[in-house]
Simulated assay, not measured.
Amino acid sequence: MHQILIIGGGAIGMLTARELSMAGYRVAIFDRLKTGRESSWAGGGIISPLYPWRYADSVTALACWGQEHYRELAEQLSLDTGIDPEWTQSGLLVLSPEEEETARQWAARSGSRIEILDREGIASREPAIDNTPDSGIWLPDVAQVRNPRLVKALHKDLAQRGVEIHEETTVERLLIENGRICGIETDEGTYRSDKVLICAGAWTKQLLGELGTTMEITPVRGQMILFKAEPGVINRITLENDRYIIPRRDGHILFGSTLEHEGFDKRTTEEAGEELYRIATSRLPALKSYSIEKQWAGLRPGSPAGIPYIGPHPDVAGLFVNSGHFRNGVVLGPASSRLITDIMLEREPILPPAPYALNAPREEIDA
């Protein structure tokens, strides 16, 4: 019998499996596709919430913990697996002058570094931007990872640690007896365990539906486009009107993303691609010299106020959840994975777990 079964092999599931394995537990992961190929692969890899001051302090706490540990995580994965997640401190430039006071207040509460830049300061940070506004918000400590490389490194790391990875395996139902989890039933067989963790992203609510849980996790489609440019065309992550530009080390530039409530439809649309291209090239005219190399879509696990569900199921002993990270799975992943591991193993938690409980209230804050 495996001591712990994890449903979902995205970044959240794999990071949690790594934590549990490092604590000495035998772990098996089950994923309906290949590990890391859903929202973990499709996102941008920014190690910060977009407009972090718009989120509850509980989200900020997870993000800050992850930001403090991400470079070490990426370097260790690179050393152990030979796959470099490309942790890069690009900084985040937010072109939203109307939010400067809110950003100042958030920075004072969280201890985060920000600077308010004038037009010249913005141009010095990112000269490629056209129509520079009068002021902007600069977060110099924000970094990024190349998320496809991150999940590849995690997969290899888990395999080296002896974690059993079941890909293209559908979990058909949870096995519950007398109010306690006792395993899962999959299309390849039954697996018994007295501890099961659900990290299934947008599909989490489907798995828990038969239990009548009140968790609100819904799929939110996000489409992005990718330019193949030259290194140095743009050097900073830049955010304006909910659209972000992310430069990679090799010259690739990501631009996204949409927010669409279309159920589990993951198709890309010509309309979204044209809109993203128009906005990207209007902000960065230099991109007109480069073609779109790729367009794709992913399904984020949306949750109320973007606060993830991290903790035990209130009605089924031995059943746990780590899901609902919305747009912030990459940045919140290390902290949420450590926190759920602390909870499952009854260790002193890195953060107070109450705000993330499955039945905790989740309310939007005033931005």
Rank of each mutant, 00 (worst) to 15 (best):
E210V: 09
E262A: 05
L5V: 09
Y356P: 06
N131A: 12
A200N: 13
L319W: 12
W87H: 14
I12C: 00
E38P: 10
L150V: 01
I181S: 04
I234S: 12
G162L: 00
A61F: 11
I198S: 00
P127G: 07
Q206A: 09
C64M: 12
A56H: 14
W65N: 10
P304E: 08
A280T: 00
P231I: 06
D130Y: 08
N178E: 15
G82H: 09
Q206Y: 12
H155P: 10
D187I: 03
V94W: 09
L276A: 02
S303V: 12
I137F: 07
I29D: 14
D250P: 05
A297P: 10
D31R: 04
R146P: 01
R119F: 10
R249I: 14
W296V: 00
S336L: 03
S48W: 14
A107G: 12
I365E: 11
A272N: 12
P314T: 10
L284K: 01
S90K: 06
C182Y: 06
H261V: 02
D194Q: 11
E262V: 15
R161L: 09
S110W: 02
T258H: 06
L62R: 10
A108R: 07
T269V: 04
M14W: 05
T81P: 03
W41S: 05
R104C: 12
R113V: 07
G232N: 06
L77V: 13
P355I: 09
L50W: 06
P140E: 14
D118Q: 14
G333E: 03
L92Y: 13
P231A: 08
D242L: 06
L211C: 03
G8S: 08
G36S: 15
I340G: 02
L319Y: 08
P247N: 07
I129K: 09
I137L: 13
G324Q: 07
M1N: 13
C182T: 13
L332H: 05
T81Y: 02
Q89R: 15
E72N: 11
E363L: 08
Y309Q: 07
L339P: 00
P49E: 04
R149I: 03
I114L: 15
L284A: 08
T60S: 11
D57E: 07
S124Q: 10
N359C: 01
V145Q: 04
H313S: 11
